[in-house]
Design a protein around this nucleic acid. Structure first.
Length: 432
RNA sequence: UCCACGAUAGCUCAAUGGUAGAGCAUGCGGCUGUUAACCGCAGGGUUGCAGGUUCAAGUCCUGCUCGUGGAGCCA
């Protein structure tokens, strides 16, 4: 069987006769010549059907093609400066595979509600294809980064018996005779068990939040990668996060430049994402807010607008560390030099994209951990296995979580998380 | 949960309280180099739902439904 030839490879086939298989992206007709724009998932090419060069039947078939009809087209590949991409196909044969019904997504603009209703078709659009390719490249960069640094992939369960951090609202359901169970909001506690077994691990999978959040920064189902490292303190954790983000961004910049162009992304905003990133304490962040006229009280968590003000001071992600322990999860270790703050770090993306990483050094003292569980009114019985990690060879350890869709949105420069995942799940939408 | 905004042709939108229109899409016709091609013709509407005010409501008022993005919370 001859392998299929794809549009992206056509520069290597100039002068050859090839058969391409795909869908009609658009067509223009001028009496005796038809211009068919074919897309095949790897690119777009203009195919020329001249009445004099093909049979009457083939010319008629070409005219029957509606937007998104599938067809095969044979012809000679030629260089052509008049065509987008510089390559054209001089058609000799057109075979209809399937005539498409009236396609809902036309060449004119559409509203987001309509597009998201037709998400399964919207994904065929140029920009959506570019975003999906970048998402794939980010995922590969994440895996490469950890795989090359001695990490082991460690898959946590998605069904959990309790709220992991005790704060978020989770999706709840009946689990046979064992009562309520929940969809995971984080694999972190399980990753800690993995780190004690394997040293350095990362989890990568979907997580679920049932919070009734209705903003462009929220999905009810999203993907998160969470590295967890034994014998890492907060500084080690920040070093890793910094190197990690630089690697992801620079990889996408060098490997998916054409997709960033399709998205009209200002890449100068990404080229600056190089180590070192600024590192400021929560106290310093509060000072920045006050200088910018924000009435901010020490002890509160940073809100979305606060984050935007802070991140706008810098041309690359900024790491904010040592938050008030009151606003952070129970498992975060307190700073021995100031017990009011936790050894936590949030990484804020530039341009108002908000928190893309949240991490911390974990509490390794079992007595302190038990008292935190009590303070947060969490059922200790559910955490006995987690406490065992402290009973049997407790070590300092750290980790963080990176939200995939927020990272993809930031890199792509898109304004809503729903475009960063194929089929977004939001509070008032679970279709298509 | 709270706040704000919105709903008119398949889609995107317009219409001072006074005959509901345009572009795109669709159908037919024209054009041998088009780039969201263009030109001509045609079909296409219970203006989200229910009330109210008025001689007259897409437009004003009330309620409801659905949606949008912002707050809170988070990645």
């Amino acid at each position: 069987m001859r392998p299929n030839i794809y549009i992206k490879d056509l520069p290597n086939h100039i002068g050859e006769e090839v058969t391409l298989k795909g869908w009609l992206f658009n067509q223009r007709s001028s009496g005796k010549v038809k211009f068919l724009i074919l897309r095949d998932g790897t690119g777009y090419i203009q195919c020329i059907v001249f009445k004099g060069n093909v049979s009457e039947e083939v010319f008629e078939n070409a005219g029957k093609l509606t937007q998104e009809s599938s067809f095969e087209i044979t012809g000679k590949v030629k260089k052509e400066d008049r065509a987008l991409g510089g390559v054209e196909l001089d058609a000799t044969d057109v075979k209809i595979v399937s005539i498409a019904e009236e396609y809902p997504i036309t060449k004119k603009e559409h509203g987001t509600e309509f597009l998201i209703d037709n998400r399964h078709l919207w994904l065929r659009s140029k920009k959506q294809v570019a975003i999906m390719r970048i998402r794939h490249r980010v995922v590969k960069a994440i895996r490469d980064f950890f795989d090359d640094r001695g990490f082991t992939l460690f898959d946590p369960p998605i069904i959990t018996p309790n709220a992991c951090e005790g704060t978020s609202t989770l999706f709840e359901f009946d689990y046979f005779d064992l009562g309520k169970a929940y969809l995971t909001q984080s694999g972190q506690l399980y990753a800690e068990a993995g780190a004690m077994a394997l040293g350095k691990v990362y989890t990568f999978g979907p997580t679920f939040r049932a919070e009734k959040s209705k903003t462009r920064r929220h999905l009810t189902e999203f993907w998160m990668v969470e590295p967890e490292m034994a014998y890492f303190n907060l500084d080690d954790d920040m070093d890793l996060a910094e190197e990690f983000l630089e690697y992801i961004v620079q990889t996408v910049l060098s490997e998916r430049k054409e997709d960033l162009e399709i998205l009209e992304r200002d890449v100068t905003k990404l080229e600056t994402v190089k180590r070192p990133f600024p590192r400021i304490s929560y106290d310093e962040a509060v000072e920045i807010l006050k200088k910018n006229g924000v009435d901010f009280e020490w002890g509160n968590d940073l809100g979305a607008t606060d984050e935007t003000i802070i991140s706008s001071q810098y041309d690359r992600p900024v790491m904010v560390h040592r938050y008030p322990s009151e606003v952070k999860a129970f498992y975060m270790k307190r700073d021995p030099e100031n017990p009011k703050v936790a050894l936590a770090v949030d990484v804020l993306a530039p341009e108002g994209y908000g928190e893309i990483i949240g991490g911390s050094q974990r509490e390794d003292d079992i007595e302190l951990l038990i008292s935190r569980i009590k303070e947060h009114n969490l059922p200790q019985s559910f955490f006995e296995w987690y406490l065992d990690l402290r009973r049997f060879g407790s070590v300092p350890h750290s980790g963080f979580g990176l939200g995939l869709e927020r990272t993809v949105s930031w890199i792509c420069g898109i304004d809503h998380l729903r475009e960063a995942i194929p089929f977004p799940r939001m509070i008032y939408r679970n279709t298509p």
